[in-house]
């Protein structure tokens, strides 16, 4: 549904997006993650036909967004990372304006407006002027406007920013429902736990490039060899480092507390290797009070990728 090939975006000498490649399947929710300045917003804007890339191709449902932007725009619903609204319009008027601009007429238009307001939980406040809305409510109004013409592809830049926990859960449910109805959704977010729960495919961007891309299963499976260990001792032990040095599969051993009793380490291997590590620690006479082994979450991966030098290899 969305295909991005070799996308490059320059702002003068600055390379905002560099040879970005990825594709989003119909009915899928693709999450774009990356630190500030990674190029997420630029990439989304280019797909939304609002930014002319320096190089590359973008296809939306087999329509070139670069060569036929007018056609591509009909398929797109775009929501930017900050929620501008027409301050002096009422919420329903705001949605009605766009329903009208997208060519909806008569009862169909009215029904679409009401439906989008209902979907975003704004039906009760539909007569409120936009200027009286909180940031979270504006975000909802914007989402309602984005949904009003029933676009096949949704491009959402930081949709969960400024939303309270309840609204985030609502948003997640709305997006899952839309994806279930066959909509293709591309969203970017900094709320990593949120993205893990909402998206089925992820792309990690760093310095304009795609550092890692795939379904959540693929990504976590590819990092299965890296387990994170959390070790808690009941008291500080002077010869701890000597013991740790003898366990070769451990790396990145770090103290996480201040009393010399809480530590974190990475380990090559799975649960079997973790059991062996625990046995070695106990056999060495360490007073182990707690031992947790878990696979890295999206957040851990994000931090790991962010701390690594840029990966040159592009993920498809």
């Amino acid at each position: 549904m969305i295909e991005v090939r070799d996308l490059k975006i320059h702002y003068g000498d600055l390379v905002a997006v560099d040879q970005l490649c990825f594709s989003v399947k119909p009915g899928s929710i693709f999450g774009l993650i990356g630190p500030n300045g990674a190029g997420k917003t630029s990439a989304i804007k280019a797909i939304a036909t609002l930014l002319e890339p320096t190089y590359g191709d973008i296809w939306v449902k087999e329509i070139s967004a670069l060569h036929q932007p007018e056609k591509a725009r009909k398929l797109l619903g775009y929501m930017p990372d900050f929620p501008p609204v027409y301050e002096d319009l009422k919420i329903w008027e705001f949605c009605d304006l766009f329903a009208h601009a997208y060519g909806l007429v008569g009862e169909h238009r009215k029904a679409s407006v009401l439906q989008s307001l209902h979907a975003t939980g704004l039906k009760e406040q539909m007569n409120a002027p936009c200027r009286t809305l909180s940031r979270g409510m504006r975000q909802r109004a914007l989402l309602a406007k984005t949904l009003v013409h029933d676009p096949a592809v949704l491009l959402l830049d930081e949709p969960a920013a400024n939303l309270d926990p309840k609204s985030r859960i609502d948003l997640r449910n709305i997006l899952k429902k839309l994806a279930g109805n066959g909509k293709t959704i591309l969203l970017s977010s900094h709320v990593l736990s949120e993205i893990e729960d909402t998206c089925d495919t992820l792309g990690f961007m760093k310095a304009g490039k795609m550092a890692l891309c795939g379904t959540i299963d693929e990504i976590t499976r590819s990092n299965r060899q890296n387990c994170l260990l959390k070790i808690h001792l009941s008291r500080a032990v002077p010869n701890l480092l000597k013991v740790i040095d003898q366990i070769s599969i451990l790396s990145e051993f770090k103290e996480t507390g201040t009393e010399g009793t809480r530590f974190r380490a990475s380990m090559n291997g799975g649960e079997k290797e973790a059991t062996e590590v625990l046995a070695q620690l106990v056999n060495a006479g360490l007073p182990v009070a707690g031992f947790i082994c878990h696979r890295p979450s999206v957040e851990d991966l994000f931090l790991q990728i962010e701390s690594q030098p840029t990966v040159e290899k592009q993920a498809e």
Partner: peptide, 10 residues
């Protein structure tokens, strides 16, 4: 950014 919304309408 409101102009961008309008730019995207058909």
């Amino acid at each position: 950014g409101l102009l961008d919304y309008q730019r995207m309408t058909p």
